[in-house]
């Protein structure tokens, strides 16, 4: 058979549609063209030609089908990515106000509320009071140990006992003594 002699170009017909190259298409054209020539000269091999034309149509059908499927898949994927992108952009708009900014949940009882300056002032006051307390404690210790003499008008008060047990006169002395002590503590700062 002449076909077997020309196995090379005719083999293109046996190939899978997605394996076809441009060269294969040329081979197919060559074979079809040659067969058509035969028809015109001798009128033979018509059924073979019909079979091959059908095969070619089948190949094209497959190719077109797959192509359409691919286009549909890509369109779906594009739409999905578009939706995803819109979602992420939307999140960025509400969650990240700016690269160095923070969104505060006003319903959070533990949300930041005070400024650094306010904290600084509170800490300064705390440390001031702590220092005053230390000075007072030191002073008290000195009075207790007798290293400092009692000043006239000063009354020894037992700090361990509750104030309710103090009698009226002691409470009065106590009140007079207070401003002096305060002055002492502050003057030391």
């Amino acid at each position: 058979m002449e076909l077997r002699e020309d196995a090379s170009p005719a083999s293109a017909f046996e190939k899978d549609a997605f394996q076809l190259t441009v060269e294969d298409v040329y081979d197919i054209s060559y074979v079809i063209g040659r067969d058509l020539l035969k028809i015109s000269s001798s009128g033979e091999e018509v059924s073979d030609l019909q079979f091959r034309i059908v095969r070619v149509l089948e190949l094209f059908e497959t190719v077109v089908k797959q192509y359409n499927l691919s286009v549909e898949e890509l369109r779906l994927e594009r739409d999905n990515l578009k939706t995803e992108l819109d979602r992420i952009l939307g999140e960025n708009c509400t969650e990240n106000v700016g690269p160095d900014q923070l969104v505060i949940d006003l319903k959070d009882p533990n949300r930041p509320r005070f400024t650094m300056q306010e904290l600084k002032e509170v800490l300064q006051e705390r440390n001031q009071l702590k220092a005053q307390l230390m000075v007072s404690q030191e002073e008290l210790q000195m009075y207790k140990s007798g290293r400092l003499p009692m000043e006239p008008g000063m009354v020894e008060i037992d700090l361990e006992s509750p104030p309710a047990t103090d009698n009226g006169s002691a409470a009065g002395d106590d009140a007079r003594e207070e401003p002096k002590d305060e002055r002492t503590a502050i003057s030391k700062l």
Binding site: K120, Q124, K130, A131, V135, K188, L189
Partner: peptide, 9 residues
């Protein structure tokens, strides 16, 4: 002499 406990920053 007596120094002060200065707590100012």
């Amino acid at each position: 002499n007596s120094e002060n406990v200065d707590i100012s920053s």
